[in-house]
Write a protein that binds this DNA or RNA. Sequence first.
RNA 1: GCCUCUGUAGCUCAACGGAGAGAGCACUGGUCUUCGGAACCAGGGAUGGGGGUUCGAUUCCCUCCAGAGGCACCA
Length: 571
Amino acid sequence: MISEEIQRVAAAAGRSLGVKIPVQLDHPDRPDHGDYATNWPLLAFSRLKKQRPELTNPLDLAKLLTLKLPPIKGVTRVTAAPPGFVNFWLAPDYLLAQAAAILDEEKFRQQLAKIGHGKTVVIDYSAPNIAKSFGIGHLRSTNIGQAIYNLYRLLGWRTIGDNHLGDWGTQFGRLIYMIKSKKVPLDKLTVAKLEELYVEFHHRVAKNPRLEEEGRRWFRRLEEGDREAKRIWQACVRVSRAEFDRIYRLLGVKIDYALGESYYYFQGWMDQVLTDARRRRLLQKSRGALVMKLPGLEVPAMLVKSDGATTYLLRDLATIKFRVQKWHPDLIVYEVGGEQRLHFQQVFLAAEQLGYISRRQLVHLGHGLIRSRRGKFSTRQGRTLHLEEVINEGLRRARQLVKRSGQNLSPAEKEAVAQAVAIGGIKFNDLKQEIQRDIVFDWEKILAIEGYSAPYLQYTYARGRSILTRGDVVKTARLPARLNGEELALLRTYYQFPEVLISAASQFAPHFLAQYLFQLAQKFNLFYQKHRVLGLADQKRTQFRLFLTQVTTVILRLGLETLGIQPLEKM
RNA sequence: GCCUCUGUAGCUCAACGGAGAGAGCACUGGUCUUCGGAACCAGGGAUGGGGGUUCGAUUCCCUCCAGAGGCACCA
């Protein structure tokens, strides 16, 4: 990459001036500051001013550095700028070549895939709880997790998605107790019914705290292999999984594995963790429970409860042991809400103490929660927001909008567009901003059709495609003698695409990609507004603009697909 | 009480320690001999308070204030 070349050459020039600090490059905010900039002279000045008193300020040093720089292929201009930056302009023919490289899509993908070749990442995401409806929080995990998965995959990593279903634990003891005490027929179970039972259980506990004991007792019996308990548990899992599958189909999401927590019970992985812990003398008895003390944490990690039943934490440790043995991952990423930060801190420390994996290879992406303007959505307060409601409202609005489309769409096409717009909007709402922040749920925002939104990107793509279906397919183009501002602005955006993908992946920040796509779309729309593409007297110009349109649509398509959003040919 | 996250324009959000702090929505005024107006252009407006580190702080440190989340037998 040219950025590395600039860094290398500039660092060498810097050394010849007597300062050994690496050259950091960034993209300046303003176009008149070039395509890359470095603050190297500002950093170097304080070190150098003692030895070189003739340098009175960082700008002098910047000027000196530009003089020392040999020509760099692809760089057309280097300038020193106050208070002490060096700016680099890329040559238009270099920019054109980079754009053309993207159009050779297969080769472009191969180039990207070299970046992470040979590395493996396990991504733990979505993870809805059996016997509860698919809430908007799990939707967020699903959307972000899938985007991270797609990013790493595009960059050549071997990616393993695991939907760590919440299908084991004390809540099943509670449900089994409720189902038995209310004599609910198992063939009549629905997710709604289960959720109702769960809420009712909490109401009853409020009056009679001893009921918690009943829940724990039934979970322990489930773990001890009680046949009746197991039969009821299986029925719960069956209805829930059918429901989740339906939702994943709606969302267009497919996760490689859905082993679930129960897998680690049935396969005996939890026992192995306990054995490992004993062998390493990490287990302690505390208030009747088995716990591990962890360095730097006051609260010990509980592996086994005082009644002998297993904990969430033990299952997470078993999961790590399993994943390490099966896939040998370089990285395990957990896309789980930020309220579990302490839990994962415990898990990661414990896994390291057990010798399974280094803490540095474990990442918890704690996304912020989605809350209403008034506060948190809460199952117990009956203030939940079901995904289904959100999707239905999105579809309703999108259908209204599609009705007014000037395009000649068949009813089936209209429905497909409405779905892509509604689902795309919902996903984009989760991906458009930094993930650790809370999101204030807002219908107008989640289903926005203007501005920084999925439909805006889909629309821009459709516009571009519409031109391309009328023009010739161009794979490359010649640079016109003079580029106008809008053409140049587009060319100066394309080469950044791979950089954006890399930083979005390495910083687990899908919003970097979302913002880049939006900026690209804005530039294309301005270009589109001011200039015609087709039917120009200057045919070479038409060819060149077709090329720009083509590159724009390819990036938009790849980018949207990576975010899990469907691009639309017409809408 | 302790720990973590978040305070940026009327609202919702950006900004590896760098150059007039950028967008979207809303508001006001404009653009069309249209390859798709779900578009484009222009305008006003912002870093919670106080210290500190630095040539330079929205960013790092301290403190106060405000909001959210968490603090072993739910997951």
